[in-house]
Each structure stands twice: as structure tokens, then as C-alpha cells.
Simulated scan of single mutants.
Amino acid sequence: MRKLFSWLGPPPGAKAASLYAALVAMARDKHWYVEGKVSDDLDGRFAILSTLVALATLRLEDGEEDAVRTSVALTEAFIADMDSQMRELGFDTTIGKQVRGLVGALASRVDRWRHASDENADHEEWKAATLFSVYRDEDPGEDALTYAEEQLRRVAERMAGEPDAALIKGDL
């Protein structure tokens, strides 16, 4: 059926497919769940993925016009993936209430990271954003929190150092 309507245009999020795939691969890295002590379940994996998507969204919003458009496509890719995953798991998404909740969770992470990434923000704000975004304000212990905070800072710095075109291609 999808091929039949392919003339209507690419599916939502197609422009950001490579970047989204790179973020998903990054979220699957074991180090988040071992050294970072993120729970290796649906909630923990969602927390890491949505945090990485939030950081990428903020970086894209700081780019040129094509990057800004890709930030919208990245959100669309995230929504499409979450909808697909929830359907696969047997959730009833006809109303979309669950998907809207996940999108709201992404939006709150974007807002939190926007504030923590501000040039006037201090170390404590980045730490608080990590605690909120990755651990949902449940203290994982100082070592795990510090590890996740440092890893997220490295990811954000790596994205900041990439040209828009490379980031859009998913070159992380």
C-alpha cells in the first residue's frame, strides 16, 4: 500500500532518517546501561533515545535553514518510530494518547536541555537536566549520574562540532 501512494511524497521524518538511525544506534550502546546504570527496559531506552533526539534537535535549530527543517523531520521520525513501536507492542494507539504523551516527554526534554545548554547555565543545570532527562529525577548514584552527564556533554559537543550536512547524514 505504501508503494501505491509513494507519489504523495516521502513519509514523515524521511529527511532525518539517517540521523535518527544514528541516534537509535547510539542509544543502544551498552555503556548507557552498564556504566550509566540506566534501566535496560522500555523506559530506560526511551529516556536515552529521547534525550539524544532532544540534544540533536537543539543543535539542528542552531544551524542553517536546511538544518532547522531537519529538526522538524527528526521529530516526525521520532513520532513515527514511537507509533510503530507501540503498535508492535500491542498498545492501542487509535486515539494517539500514548504517542502524544511520548511527544510531550520529548518536548519537555528539549525545553530542559535548551535551558541547560544556554551559555549562562552552570554545571548544576546540566547535571539537573541529565537527572531529569535520563533518570526521571530518580538518583542513580553519583558515579552513574556523572558518567551519563559527561557522555551527554560529549555527544552535544560532537554534534556542535559537526557541519550541518554531516549531522543531517548521521555522521556522529
Rank of each mutant, 00 (worst) to 15 (best):
R2T: 15
K3H: 15
L4D: 13
L4A: 15
F5S: 14
S6K: 08
L8H: 03
G9I: 07
P10V: 14
P10T: 09
P11E: 15
P12A: 14
G13H: 10
A14K: 05
K15N: 12
K15A: 15
K15V: 15
A16P: 09
A17V: 03
L19C: 11
Y20N: 08
Y20S: 13
A21M: 01
A21G: 06
A21C: 03
A25K: 05
A25V: 04
M26H: 08
M26P: 02
M26V: 01
R28K: 11
D29C: 04
H31Q: 09
W32Q: 04
Y33P: 00
Y33W: 02
V34A: 11
E35P: 06
E35M: 05
G36E: 08
V38N: 06
D41N: 15
L42W: 09
D43N: 14
R45E: 15
R45A: 11
S50P: 05
T51A: 06
T51L: 04
L52D: 05
L52G: 13
V53Y: 04
A54L: 08
A54R: 01
L55N: 09
L55E: 06
A56V: 00
A56E: 06
T57Q: 05
L58S: 02
R59K: 11
L60M: 03
G63Q: 02
E64I: 00
V68C: 00
R69Q: 10
T70V: 04
V72P: 00
T75G: 12
A77V: 02
M82W: 06
M82A: 14
Q85C: 10
Q85Y: 07
L89S: 11
L89Y: 08
G90L: 00
G90D: 04
T93R: 01
T94P: 01
T94I: 01
I95M: 06
G96I: 01
K97C: 07
Q98H: 05
V99S: 08
R100H: 12
G101T: 13
L102P: 07
L106A: 10
A107E: 03
A107Y: 01
A107K: 01
R109Y: 10
R109F: 10
D111T: 03
D111E: 11
R112E: 13
W113S: 02
W113H: 07
H115Q: 09
S117A: 14
N120D: 12
A121E: 08
H123V: 14
E125L: 15
W126F: 12
K127L: 15
L131G: 09
L131Q: 10
F132V: 00
F132N: 08
F132S: 12
Y135L: 08
R136Y: 12
D137K: 08
D137W: 02
D137L: 14
P140G: 11
G141T: 05
G141M: 01
A144R: 05
A144W: 08
L145I: 01
T146H: 07
T146E: 14
Y147D: 02
Q151E: 07
L152P: 02
R154T: 14
R154C: 12
R158K: 13
R158N: 10
M159G: 08
M159Q: 11
A160T: 13
A160S: 13
A160K: 03
A166L: 14
K169C: 15
G170K: 07
